[in-house]
Amino acid sequence: MECVFGLVGNGFAIVAADTSAVHSILVHKSNEDKIMVLDSHKLIAASGEPGDRVQFTEYIQKNVALYQFRNGIPLTTAAAANFTRGELATALRKNPYSVNILLAGYDKETGPSLYYIDYIATLHKVDKGAFGYGSYFSLAMMDRHYHSGMSVEEAIDLVDKCIMEIRSRLVVAPPNFVIKIVDKDGAREYAWRESIKDAGFVSA
């Protein structure tokens, strides 16, 4: 019952993901971080088969770092998204990865952006996006409450509403979520939402 979702606000992009590692009816761990920091100003959140998710996101992270090492400049968010899409498209015809990705970043020239990349290498620049069973509810909440130019406080409030909706509507809802943000100050972890501790969502 994975769920990854994100949105773009006024000068930042924010991504949230559940932290459950499950197989069939078993929960292996509930603190799996599914949002990787690609570089100083990029985040990549992924859902899908655990092995594919970890292997592919690490592969993208290392190649983004390699490009910056070789050329002395980092990839833009758009370039990183297109590179990721190209690698998925190449693998699709050989040994496909079962992985869906939200790539968020911040560039000085263009500001924050969010890219939707699915397992069959579809790429779209979006203001809000989601993957997994929780996407049915998080997308509905974002359609209702999202607006361009949201402040960080408004975005976090909307993320909390999405998490509450997922927990109340899914039969098997993930208990914990991690929230990360990227803006002009860089990519970083913002908060965790742990079901045992955050009744009513204590502010981060």
Rank of each mutant, 00 (worst) to 15 (best):
K184H: 14
V64I: 14
A80H: 02
Y59F: 15
A91Y: 05
T76L: 09
L114W: 02
K29Y: 05
S113W: 03
L158N: 02
M1R: 10
A80S: 12
K34R: 14
V8N: 11
D160F: 04
G149F: 02
V15P: 00
A91L: 01
V171L: 11
A89T: 00
T122P: 02
D33Q: 10
R53T: 15
T77R: 04
V171H: 09
H147S: 15
V182I: 07
G72F: 11
E165F: 00
A140F: 03
V54A: 08
S195Y: 12
A187V: 05
L102A: 01
G111C: 01
D127C: 10
V159F: 04
K128Q: 04
E49C: 05
I14H: 01
M142K: 07
D107M: 01
I166M: 09
A204K: 13
S113D: 03
E49K: 11
I73M: 09
A89P: 00
Y67G: 13
Y106T: 04
V15F: 00
K197M: 14
Y136T: 13
A140C: 06
M141V: 14
S40F: 05
D107Q: 04
M150W: 05
S195K: 10
K161N: 10
D127Q: 15
N100R: 07
L114A: 01
R85S: 10
S98E: 14
G134R: 08
P174Y: 02
Q61T: 11
D198V: 14
A204F: 06
K128G: 02
Y67N: 14
L38M: 13
S30P: 00
G111P: 01
F69V: 06
A81Y: 00
G129N: 03
A65I: 03
A199E: 09
L7P: 04
I181V: 15
A89K: 10
S203Y: 14
A79L: 06
N95P: 00
T110L: 03
S30F: 00
L158T: 10
L26G: 02
E165D: 08
I156H: 11
I14K: 04
R53C: 10
I163G: 13
I181F: 07
A173V: 05
F12E: 06
I117T: 11
K62C: 05
D198I: 12
A155L: 03
S40N: 14
G129T: 06
A204C: 09
V126A: 03
G51E: 03
M150T: 06
D160H: 15
R193I: 04
G134D: 07
Y146G: 04
R70G: 07
R188C: 03
D185A: 14
A16V: 09
E165I: 03
C162V: 13
N95Y: 07
V27I: 12
G134P: 05
I14L: 12
D198L: 12
E2L: 00
F12G: 03
I117F: 03
P174I: 02
